[in-house]
Nucleic acid binder design. Structure first.
Lengths: 100, 100
DNA sequence: CAGTTATATAACGGTATGATTATATATCTC
DNA sequence: GAGATATATAATCATACCGTTATATAACTG
């Protein structure tokens, strides 16, 4: 699964957001998201396959954490459009001001 | 279709990239991508539904263009992770330097 | 208006996706 | 070692998605 496909799913985006504050156990993420245990486990697997998160075992728990690399890759794809929308939104601002 | 789902598909990303340089006719995009005519048409429809592009008719042609708003929205979702990965990648750099 | 060009839509098939239920695996505790 | 806890995997089902072929719609051209 590509990072693009991984973030297409709302629950997976939510998982990533939850991991922003640091490592969390799978069961913790189950509770926080309201997903079923197998559901969360599968989504986490896909995030892992996309390189967006990593896991380490601690006792019987699995601790997930965000991985910066692929997130940055997503950002760098968007980069090529950044100048474009900055220009467009600036133009819109100017237009609004003229209207007033 | 959400913008997240829209950019999950490689051909749609390619369409967006092609539109970066300005308005282009649907038929032009068909040639540039190598997609079938109906295939391109459907992908363009989904990009439209995601708010990532808009169309206007000119004669028998349909001219597609990028729309800045939803692209910026994607970016703003990523924004919340930017500090995170900047920190992480900086840490990695430092680590590499120590290794040497 | 007949034919051609440009594009969209419909219909269909194969495959992937996400949710759910049941089961397996591994670790901890007594 | 027998439960109990934490997590992953398998099996199943319904639905969504993408590509393809065929057809419809609309605008130009002679």
């Amino acid at each position: 699964m590509t990072p693009f496909e991984a973030i297409a799913e709302p629950n997976r985006r939510r998982l990533l957001e939850l991991l922003r504050s640091g490592e969390r156990a799978a069961g913790d993420l189950v509770k926080a998201t309201g997903l079923s245990q197998p559901g969360a486990s599968k989504h986490l697997k896909q995030l892992r396959e996309a390189g967006l998160v990593s896991v380490r075992a601690e006792g019987q728990k699995r601790l997930y954490r965000l991985e910066a690399g692929e997130l940055a890759a997503l950002d760098s794809w968007l980069e090529q459009f950044r100048q474009f929308w900055a220009d467009r939104l600036d133009a819109l601002d100017e237009h609004m001001e003229k209207e007033q």
